[in-house]
Amino acid sequence: MSDKFYSRLDQELAGIKDAGLWKVERPFSTPQGPIVRVGDGPELLNLCANNYLGLANDSEVVAAAEEANRRWGAGLASVRFICGTQDIHKELEAETAAYFGYEDAILFAAAFDANGAVFEPLFGPDDAIISDTLNHASIIDGVRLSKARRYRYATNDMGDLERALTEAKAEGACQIVIVTDGVFSMDGTIANLGAITALAKRFDALTLVDDCHASGFLGPQGRGSAAYRGVEGQIDILTGTYGKALGGAMGGFVAAKRQVVDLLRQRARPYLFSNALAPSICGASLAAIRIARSERGDLLRAQLAENSARFRDGLEHLGYDLIPGEHPIIPIMLYDAHKAQALAAALYEAGVYVTPFSFPVVPRDLARIRVQMSAALTPAHIDRALDAFASAGRKLEIIA
Rank of each mutant, 00 (worst) to 15 (best):
D126V: 05
D113P: 02
N46E: 06
N50K: 09
D365Y: 00
A255I: 03
D187H: 13
A117D: 04
G116N: 14
A97Y: 03
G233S: 05
L9Q: 02
L377A: 10
L272G: 05
S2M: 09
E162V: 13
A350Q: 06
A278Y: 10
L145G: 12
R70C: 05
R150H: 03
G314Y: 09
E397A: 13
P121A: 07
S7Q: 14
S285E: 03
I399E: 01
N57D: 11
D87Y: 06
L206E: 10
H136T: 14
L366T: 09
A117G: 07
A65W: 11
E12W: 13
G325Y: 13
E349C: 04
N307V: 01
V143T: 12
H381G: 14
D298I: 14
E67L: 07
R384K: 07
A68L: 02
G393I: 15
V261K: 02
A94Y: 07
A154T: 11
R370G: 10
A168V: 15
A173K: 07
F253E: 00
T133C: 08
A173N: 11
N46I: 01
R364Q: 10
C83Y: 08
Q175K: 14
A63D: 13
E232W: 04
A385T: 09
R368A: 09
L45V: 12
Y348L: 15
A376G: 08
T85Y: 01
A65N: 04
A276F: 13
G240H: 02
V361T: 14
G351E: 08
S280E: 14
D126P: 03
P34I: 06
G297I: 15
E162F: 09
F357V: 12
T241W: 02
A305M: 05
Y242V: 06
P328F: 12
G54W: 02
L122D: 00
Y153D: 04
R71S: 00
V24F: 03
S146T: 08
P270Q: 11
L47P: 00
Q266D: 09
D87R: 03
G252P: 00
G84Y: 09
F5V: 09
K147H: 14
I106E: 02
Y271P: 02
A214V: 13
F217D: 01
W72E: 04
P331L: 13
E397N: 08
R370T: 15
P31H: 07
D10K: 14
E171I: 10
D181H: 02
V179W: 00
A309W: 06
